[in-house]
Design a protein around this nucleic acid. Structure first.
Length: 291
DNA sequence: ACCCACCCCTGGGCGC
DNA sequence: TGCGCCCAGGGGTGGG
């Protein structure tokens, strides 16, 4: 569910809510939530107990909390994950998967995840950058993101431009919402072959990606429902600023043509058929079975 | 070395 | 009401 702005809101909440605190106890209620921790839940708990949280980091949609042991508590929210910092007396959420309490006995950290696509693990020596996410590219809000390299790598791909935007090893943090919003702003069709995206197109697209991510972050992210909330349970307000995502049949905010939804990559792509012209030779044969 | 279809889950909404 | 489908912001993996 969450993309970069939503995950960054969560990271900021973790920075305020758990950094500097020492773990007292950890309870794992659903083994699937820690399935990426190969050594199992018992080891997961052992590596956390007594450790102090040093900071809260993010790359793309991944989060990690460096610990005073040099390890890192690493997490991904998947489609429906939440990291909540709540008073211990607050009743357990239906989909509570992991509880982490601290030795000051104040607010606890809860990992709640309806669909369990997300999960937590402790990566040994992962404080700098957990090895499990070393394949994830820097995100476009990272000061060290290399625009020229992105443009060059995009051009070298043989796929459609939206597929490339969603490829977390090329550029991280973008998901279905912000891909569609960025492509609409850049007036590029989602299936334009990457070899036909000029360097100027790529840099313009990148600028729109940054704008939309930053605008959303400033609004606290996009919350269609209660599944995405901050660590304090607060929803984001960016939904009202979405130009195409979820607006099938409604007028394009630029030209008034009805926004279309296409089935693409087993998902939906929202776009303006007038502002974002389909390529002559699309990358994907899967058509626009409209729904 | 790439690229893509499939799979992992739960729950809400809708048509019948 | 209930059933069966479709849909949802994610990534990893195995096969082509």
């Amino acid at each position: 569910m969450p993309e970069l702005p939503e995950v960054e809101v969560v990271r900021q909440g973790l920075a305020r809510g758990v950094v500097g605190r020492r773990v007292a106890a950890v309870e794992v209620y659903h083994p699937r939530a820690v399935r990426r921790h190969a050594a199992g839940p018992v080891d997961f708990v052992a590596l956390l107990q007594g450790r102090r949280v040093e900071s809260a980091q993010r790359r793309g949609k991944y989060l990690w909390l460096p610990l005073d042991s040099g390890d890192a508590l690493t997490g991904h929210l998947g489609m429906s994950g939440q990291l909540l910092v709540v008073p211990p007396e607050k009743p357990d959420e239906t989909h509570l998967r992991v509880r982490i309490t601290f030795d000051d006995r104040r607010r606890e950290l809860r990992f709640v995840d309806q669909r369990t696509f997300g999960g937590l693990l402790v990566v040994a020596g992962g404080a700098e950058l957990p090895s499990t996410i070393s394949h994830i590219a820097r995100d476009p809000l990272d000061p060290l993101f290399d625009d020229a390299l992105f443009s060059q790598q995009l051009g070298a791909k043989r796929t459609g431009v939206k597929r490339a935007l969603l490829d977390q090893s090329l550029i991280s943090g973008i998901g279905n919402i912000y891909a569609d919003e960025s492509l609409w702003r850049a007036q590029l069709h989602y299936d334009r072959p990457t070899e036909r995206v000029t360097r100027a197109d790529a840099l313009r697209l990148l600028a729109h990606v940054r704008d939309v991510l930053q605008e959303s972050l400033a609004a606290g992210g996009t919350s269609f429902d209660a599944l995405y909330v901050s660590t304090e349970g607060v929803s984001g307000l960016f939904e009202r600023e979405l130009a195409v995502y979820g607006r099938e049949g409604e007028p394009c905010l630029r030209c008034s043509a009805p926004v279309r939804r296409a089935h693409f990559m087993n998902r939906s792509s929202y776009y303006c058929p007038r502002c974002q012209r389909a390529p002559r030779s699309p990358r994907t044969s899967a058509g626009t079975r409209s729904g």
